[in-house]
Design a protein around this nucleic acid. Structure first.
Lengths: 232, 232
DNA sequence: GTCTATATACGGATAGAC
DNA sequence: GTCTATCCGTATATAGAC
């Protein structure tokens, strides 16, 4: 039983870890948040982040006004500023929270496997499933990458490079062990990332396809190209 | 000699058709442009469009101020408004011009071929080469799609659907003629578009790869997946 | 045809009442 | 802890001189 994991199972696993998300954000920004009661903070931060993603994904983060955000989140303009110092600060908090969560999950899931093909599958599957659960953020993150301040932009690029290199390392490892056919690893890794990206960038186009099905499709393309016999 | 076309040749072919671009835009917007001398209009529209793409691709169209644009284009703020009625109007002119050009080129190149595999190659190659020549606009168009007004947005979606359906039709045709292996045509078309998109969205990552090489890579992935022997 | 100066509006952020 | 009212900067767009 090497691969019992489907999306339903993965999702269940994640909902448990979801609570820690806001506790971590709270701890990191405790001094800049003017509210005392932690329960209130978590409840409202969640509303604020959700509203930010909703509006920004419709019209862009820059175009979103604080007045719109206050209305959508159901918190007055003045009260919003008790949770963050500035609009850019809000962006930073959101990005830090989600990025940390994603890379932690990727690392954890890959470490469970040792064989190249299984590690590759774990990486692709985890990325895809995470992007399904957190689709609005993945979309947002891609679209707003160039609008970030210098510090945030640097972190975003590093994080992207990290996962890109990891993918390529898995391909190189597989070739070294003669499991994968010799192909340009850099281009192959980029093609995989392109297909993963497509899932969250064009979510509405995939209405009739399940994530599990899309995962199998990516693996079919990749394994055919790498000359690997299907593993299931 | 079924396929002599490489990027250098394609580029040369395009520079000829480039002049008509601005003549067409001029004709369509003649009444809203307050300048008389046509030579001046074309020269300045080109400067304005170029500057718009440059700034917008760094920080987003919304975030670009008219003052920045005037400085980058070397035209004063007041003078800019002699060429268009509003910032949104400028966006509309730019989008109409480029979109019309792209779909015309795609259609023209595909019509030259009749065999499924050659039509597929023509479509992929033309799209890729166009996105190389007009990379700033392809990037801009993708990133700003959601910021367009309702009319512009509708046109953008239609144009995207059109090329997506065309690609799928080619795949279906190839399967019907038993040239391509049976695969999910909708997902396969989407994967091809994802790889094409990656080229212009992540242009800086492909510094060391030529367009011609990337074209061969895409075809290699696609032809392997569709079970077609390489044609060259 | 192009410039500078300005009218007008709107957005981010804060003050202070409740 | 949350609200309303407001300050202040900056953006689009225009008016009118050259």
């Amino acid at each position: 039983m090497t691969e019992p994991m489907d999306y339903a199972l993965f999702k269940e696993m994640m909902t448990i870890s979801k609570e820690e998300l806001y506790l971590e954000t709270l701890a990191e920004n405790r001094e800049s948040i003017q509210i005392k009661k932690e329960e209130t903070i978590i409840k409202n931060l969640e509303k604020i982040f959700k509203a930010t993603l909703k509006i920004s994904n419709q019209k862009g983060f820059q175009a979103m006004t604080m007045r719109e955000l206050s209305q959508e989140a159901g918190i007055s303009l003045g009260a919003l500023y008790a949770y963050f110092k500035s609009k850019d600060d809000l962006l930073g908090m959101l990005q830090n929270q989600r990025r940390a969560f994603v890379s932690r999950m990727l690392e954890k899931e890959i470490e469970k496997q040792t064989q190249p093909i299984l590690r590759l599958r774990a990486m692709i599957r985890t990325h895809l499933f995470l992007s399904e659960i957190m689709q609005p953020w993945f979309y947002f993150s891609f679209m707003e990458a160039k609008n970030l301040g210098p510090k945030e932009k640097k972190k975003a690029i590093e994080s992207d490079l990290w996962s890109g290199n990891l993918l390529e390392k898995l391909l190189i490892q597989g070739q070294a062990e003669k499991v994968f056919k010799n192909r340009d690893t850099s281009l192959t890794a980029e093609a995989i990332k392109a297909m993963l990206q497509d899932w969250y960038l064009k979510r509405s186009k995939f209405r009739t396809i399940s994530v599990d099905r899309y995962f199998e499709f990516i693996m079919e393309v990749v394994e055919t190209y790498l000359g690997v016999a299907a593993t299931i």
